[in-house]
Simulated scan of single mutants.
Amino acid sequence: MEIRAATELPARREDIELHTADDLTLVGELAVPEGGAPVATLVTLHPLPTHGGFMDSHVYKKAANRLPALADLAVLRFNTRGTSSDRGTSEGAFDGGEGERFDVAAALEYAEFHDLPRVWVVGWSFGTELALKWAHDPLVEGAILLSPPLHRATDDDLDRWAEFGRPLTVLVPEFDDYLRPEEARARFSRVPQAEVIGVDGAKHLWVGEPYVRIVLDEIVKRVNPAAFPLPTEWSLE
């Protein structure tokens, strides 16, 4: 069977709740391999909720649909404060990336409490800002950024990530609306361990199955290289 845009491969999927230090309940989902324990975990931070971003934003939905089966990864998705999806609405209100520090912490605490292994943070657009600002946690092995605008995240945040020392992979679309590869390489030069990858033909929202495949392959290449490259077919046997 060819893996297509809407393909949902086998996994154990569970609705979860996260509880923040400022007393909010956030809704989410955890998808893990059907037949055993994950080898690593993706904690995903979605795009800007005031512009349609949420836990079901298509790259993350496809990651949850495929990567537990194809790469033995756990995928944790959740709605940040005030954000809604089919799963429900997280309590609170959008806070421009500041109060969301508690949301990031709650997701990482959930992963730690539930013994999810080898946590990597994946941020997309607004989610990259949250990762750079608030994911400096000893639990985190590294981060992967998709379409970073570097609006809310400042040079000081980049310097803090440099000091944090964890790997940073940055996927930048050729035709991004906010930050394109050449400028991204200049901005991220402050982080010695950052790898900036320009993706030819891609745009900020990674629309199109070929670009989704590139993103998922690059994630797996860092987090579970034994599963790279991802297959494009799935056996029904």
Rank of each mutant, 00 (worst) to 15 (best):
G36Q: 09
A40D: 06
E17K: 08
E34W: 02
R12K: 15
G36H: 12
I16W: 03
A37S: 12
V43Q: 15
T25F: 04
D15R: 15
I16A: 04
L42P: 09
A21W: 05
G35P: 00
D15M: 07
L24P: 02
R13F: 08
A31K: 11
E14K: 14
T41E: 12
V43G: 11
L18I: 03
V39K: 15
T20K: 05
V39G: 13
V27G: 00
E14Q: 15
D15Q: 13
T41V: 10
R12M: 05
E29I: 03
V27A: 03
L30H: 09
T25D: 07
V32M: 13
P33I: 06
E29D: 03
E17N: 09
G28S: 02
L26C: 05
D15W: 03
I16G: 04
L18G: 00
A37W: 00
L18W: 07
I16E: 02
R12N: 10
E34M: 10
E29Q: 14
L18T: 01
R13P: 01
L26Q: 02
R13Y: 11
E29T: 05
V32Y: 08
H19Y: 12
E14R: 12
V32W: 05
L26S: 04
V39H: 10
R12P: 01
E14Y: 09
T25H: 08
R13T: 15
A40M: 13
L18P: 00
E34Y: 07
E14N: 08
E17V: 08
T20G: 02
L30A: 01
G36F: 06
G28W: 01
T25C: 04
A37K: 15
L30K: 00
G35N: 15
L42G: 14
E14S: 13
A40T: 13
E14H: 09
L18C: 02
A21P: 00
G28E: 01
A21R: 14
E34R: 14
R12Q: 14
G28H: 01
A31R: 13
D23Y: 07
T41F: 14
L30T: 10
A31I: 06
P33F: 10
I16H: 06
L18Y: 08
A40R: 07
V43E: 05
H19K: 12
L18H: 04
L24K: 03
R12I: 09
V39F: 11
V43N: 14
A31Y: 08
G35Y: 12
L30E: 05
D22W: 03
E34L: 14
L30M: 05
A40I: 05
I16K: 03
E29Y: 00
T41G: 12
V27D: 00
D23R: 13
A21K: 12
T25P: 02
T20D: 03
E29K: 03
L42K: 11
L18A: 01
V43D: 11
I16T: 10
T41I: 12
V39P: 00
R12L: 14
A40V: 11
G28D: 01
G36V: 09
D23I: 00
L42S: 12
T25G: 02
H19V: 02
A37Y: 07
R12E: 08
P33V: 10
D23P: 00
E17T: 13
